[in-house]
Computed example of a mutant assay.
Amino acid sequence: MRHYYIFLLKPEIATSYFGKEHLIYQLLYEGETADTELQEIVKKQINYISAIIPSLQIKKSVEKKLKVRHDFYVLKEHYYIDIKAFESKAVLKDHGNVLTISANGSYQAETIFFEVLRQINSCFFAVDFDNKNYGWLNPIKHVNYI
């Protein structure tokens, strides 16, 4: 099973740390694994770089874009995709300050959720702590000023 934490970072943080994603990952990892005393400080740092998750916008976008799919359903404010043909399942949950996606099987179901979130905001940053994977859902284009 794959489990992703999806944070919405402030635009200025996303721009500043483009190409330095490992630093964001390290901070988020410390937030999950540090001892209690240090964890409180790290959580404050994470809150400082994070933006508020636009829950209503996510709800509207997910439901609008996925309601036509026969393998999509909503149960207790959680969004599910179960693609039987590919043996792919995923659930998207909104925890207020972070989104989570839990997925089994092939990558199709979670990719559908990532695509919807990517279109909402370019500053979503996903982390899979178990497999040490991380990155932007929609890579930020780096602007070069001449």
Rank of each mutant, 00 (worst) to 15 (best):
E32H: 03
E30R: 12
E21F: 04
S16W: 01
I13D: 01
Q26I: 00
A34R: 03
E37G: 11
L9M: 07
A34M: 09
E37K: 14
E30C: 06
Y17S: 04
G31R: 00
G19W: 01
Q39K: 15
E40F: 10
K10W: 02
T33K: 06
A14S: 15
E37A: 15
Y25K: 07
K20E: 04
S16I: 02
I13F: 02
G19K: 06
D35V: 13
E40K: 14
E37Y: 10
E37S: 14
L38Y: 11
L27Y: 06
G31S: 05
E40Y: 12
L38K: 15
K20Y: 04
L9Y: 02
G31N: 02
T15A: 14
K20H: 00
L9K: 06
L9I: 04
T15G: 09
S16D: 07
Y17W: 07
E30N: 10
Q39R: 15
E40P: 03
Y25C: 06
T33N: 13
T15K: 14
L27D: 05
T36A: 15
E21Y: 05
I13T: 12
T36C: 09
K20S: 01
I24D: 04
I24V: 10
T36Q: 13
I13H: 01
F18W: 01
L27K: 07
E12C: 07
Y17K: 11
L38R: 15
L23W: 05
D35M: 12
S16T: 05
I13W: 01
H22G: 00
A34W: 00
Y29I: 05
K10P: 01
L9A: 07
L28Y: 09
G19F: 00
F18K: 12
K20V: 00
K10C: 03
Q39F: 06
G19H: 02
L28M: 12
I24W: 04
G19C: 05
K20C: 01
K20M: 07
A14E: 09
A14Q: 08
Q39M: 14
A14V: 11
L38E: 15
E37M: 12
K20D: 01
I13P: 02
T33M: 13
K20T: 00
Y25T: 06
L38T: 15
L38H: 14
P11L: 11
A14I: 09
P11I: 13
G19R: 08
L38N: 15
F18L: 09
E21W: 03
Q26M: 07
E32P: 01
A14D: 05
E30Q: 15
Y17L: 13
T33I: 10
I13N: 03
K20P: 00
A14L: 08
L28E: 08
E12Q: 14
A34L: 10
T36W: 08
Y17T: 08
E21M: 04
K10S: 06
E37H: 13
F18Y: 09
L27Q: 01
S16K: 11
E21A: 05
K10Y: 02
Q39H: 11
L28D: 08
P11K: 13
L23T: 03
Y17P: 02
T36P: 01
L27P: 01
T15W: 05
Y17E: 06
P11H: 09
